[in-house]
Design a binder for these strands. Sequence first.
DNA 1: AGTTTATCCTGTAAGC
DNA 2: TGCTTACAGGATAAAC
Length: 247
Amino acid sequence: MGRVLTSVEVGHPRTARRNASPAEVETRLQGRRVEAMGRHGKFLIAPLDDGYTLVAHLGMSGRFSIAEPSEDLPAHTHFVATLDDGRQIRFVDPRTFGFVAAFDEDELADTGLARLGPDAWEDLPDAPELRRSLRARRAPIKALLLDQTVIAGLGNIYVDEVLHRAGIHPLSPGGELTEERLEPLLAGVGVVLSVAIESGGTTLDDLGYLLPDGRAGENLGHLAVYGRQGDPCRECGTPIERMVVRA
DNA sequence: AGTTTATCCTGTAAGC
DNA sequence: TGCTTACAGGATAAAC
């Protein structure tokens, strides 16, 4: 934050796919100062000094790191920005589901970013609000919680955890849930995210996600249902059953 | 309009 | 041992 991106290199076309071309991303970022650093749901948002906005998403396997230029470039490094202090911001993303983009105001308004619902961590709605946004929707509650226009920031792992904690079946039609049922669901969001953040996030066995310092997060051990099919429920001992809600 | 499905991609694990 | 296949899932466009 506050640094100037003195040179920018996009190494993989897919990483730049939200813009017209890799060259466009490079040109728009080159020489710009990063004014702030924010987040809405899973989108990283950094306003620049010329009115453009740097937007990035980690996708499934994306990871940002800060490194000295002398350090080896890891495999699948698809974006490198050298800062005015000599350090580099690097984006490693093996599966290329993530992206780095630079948008003007109009483009920003035309991105999924503009349609995001309230942030799950910073701006969680209360039960009446959520009830209103789910009213008239018949999709399974799990699908609706994964819908970033309802609440922004929840993915497959945490939705499973939240629903289990709240005692709500993933296939329950979202529009039929009363405020009394949404209350524990929302409380579950708070608890699940607090625990996850407190323990440094969920690093799976593939080590795809790591903390900025390279350590693995410890949240995997706190998960009650995700990835535990066949294992006994910690509450009642019943083996966890696997079910695909949205393929 | 809301909902579902296909698509993108590659490291890892499981199956043969 | 080496090859093939299935699986993982973010957002989004297209189909239903």
